[in-house]
Amino acid sequence: MKITCPWCGERGEEEFIHGGPSNVERPADEKNSDDEISDAQWAEYLFMRENIKGVSCERWGHIHGCGQWFNMVRDSVSHQIHFIYKMGEQPPEGWEDVNE
């Protein structure tokens, strides 16, 4: 794949690492006390991933380049990259339907 780093431009995929889905929220960040997070909630955050076949939001790190992380909307089947946006930004409206 060719990936366009928001800071460096288009580079080969071997410069990047895939960091999993970008929509995983860390429950501990929201609440400060441990006993408020149930084992089930914690397990959900730690282990459960959707493993999407199709369009998914992921985070990628340009670790053999500038070192920055960013988000990507990618089709996990065709490997087509639809959008790339910075950390903290939201994917463009209607990203889920980009294939239709």
């Binding site: 960091g19 860390r26 960040d29 985070r59 790190g61 070192g67 920055q68 992380w69 950390m87 903290g88």
Partner: peptide, 13 residues
């Protein structure tokens, strides 16, 4: 180092 940076940039920017 990579681990610290991933947290810094993705979780606590």
């Amino acid at each position: 180092v990579q681990w610290l940076n991933e947290w810094r940039l993705c979780e606590w920017p």
